[in-house]
Design a protein around this nucleic acid. Structure first.
Lengths: 228, 228
DNA sequence: CTCATCCTGCGATGTACGTCACACTGTGGA
DNA sequence: TCCACAGTGTGACGTACATCGCAGGATGAG
């Protein structure tokens, strides 16, 4: 684990609360996992005995309906944590984790983590905050599903991805989200075709340019307006 | 606060972890709130400085879209906790709380609660579990919004309400949910009219009988099948 | 009691979006 | 290098659901 990894890790809710000494101790119990695009880290219904922090790359969390259709809970990038629900609430995993890009993760076994949590109660507070934020965000997404039409949800999703993965460039904001339109569709809860049409419409209006697994956002203000 | 209240309170996540001594200390800092049907406890965007546990009656948590349409996050009954997100993540409330029936609540001020939490770190663990469960459930509901049709969601909602508020009776399960069809519709993310039609259809099939703010579930198995 | 208001029931109509079908393009593996 | 296949783009069509409209019941405030 290099300096950059240490920094990325330090921004995760688990580490935020710790002083250098505590962080060092916690880092001692992480193991590293390497994933290539499309690789499955864990699957629904499996027993979960560890949580992860993304060091590099992107991971998607998906749920599969009985009939095989999928939906995407979220796409996670560096410093983001997942797989912790089964630590606090020991049940089988309710989502699968699949690499969207090649990447590396820090893995923390629950059995190692428990004693550490007991020894550092200040962490729990930060974790509670992290979960509270997630809950807020999820409620927000629920409301969008009910009230916002597909183009609106696509706009919202793009803005969110832009905020998290966007990089300034000539003529706009380059958002290399690494998602296929199919995945984007699963993320907003719509069919691939309608998402494609929404994107095409945005592009035609000059709000963005479509690229392979990426978009160039040209007029973020318009996009924002359309998302509300 | 009577013995029954103490028992109801004891089943809330906040109290679960505590021994009798701790519970007594925590009870010392609660204050009681009385609400009549339709009364608003708090509203969206307000600053939240306390959390609540339902002692008696039912409370709904609602969100209002900019255009005035509403959606119902959940209906809470005795022993259930709400308003805690702003304790862990200090932001304005993202939902309003309105009494569905007359009822009573236990209120706990954040400022009183913080020192108590620090003094009893075992509580945090239980709270983490409670939030994790809520997150799981919310993700579940999200998936339903995407994959399940309105009648299916209505069936699911009724089963959930039945489990939590149902009482065995001659010829079935009496579920006095106290919700208008409008509210039920907001809960499943559909229009009042379609929910009405779904209910009428279920009733016509003999799966249930419709009553004022209640249903008699006659064939729970069929309902369960329809919900999947 | 009685009127106003809330709640329910249900048909008519419009529409957003899913499904299907197919053609085009790019990309990575043999 | 070429093929196979994954990803994209777009139109035609069907349908689940929202919206609108209205009428009959229940409820409760004065």
């Amino acid at each position: 684990m290099n300096d950059r990894d240490v920094e990325v890790l330090g921004r995760a809710p688990l580490f935020e609360a710790l002083d250098e000494e505590g962080a060092k101790a916690l880092r001692a119990i992480v193991s590293e996992v390497h994933l290539s695009r499309g690789q499955t880290l864990f699957s629904e219904d499996q027993e979960g005995d560890r949580l992860y922090v993304v060091l590099e790359g992107k991971i998607k969390l998906t749920r599969t309906a009985p009939d095989g259709r999928e939906n995407l809970l979220s796409v996670l990038g560096p410093s983001e944590m997942f797989g912790e629900l089964s630590l606090f609430d020991p049940r089988p995993r309710t989502a699968s984790a699949i690499a969207v890009t090649e990447g590396r993760l820090a893995a923390l076994g629950h059995s190692d983590l428990w004693p550490f949590l007991k020894g550092h109660p200040e962490i729990s507070i930060h974790l509670l905050r992290a979960l509270a934020q997630r809950l807020r965000r999820t409620n927000e997404n629920m409301a969008d599903l009910v009230f916002t039409d597909v183009p609106g949800r696509v706009a919202k999703a793009l803005l969110d991805l832009a905020e998290r993965f966007g990089q300034p460039s000539e003529s706009g904001l380059h958002v290399h989200h690494d998602l296929t339109q199919e995945e984007l569709a699963q993320l907003v809860g719509a069919s691939r075709e309608t998402v494609n049409k929404a994107l095409a419409d945005f592009a035609q209006r000059g709000w963005l340019r479509i690229e392979a697994r990426a978009v160039q956002v040209l007029d973020i203000e318009r996009l924002r307006k359309r998302s509300r």
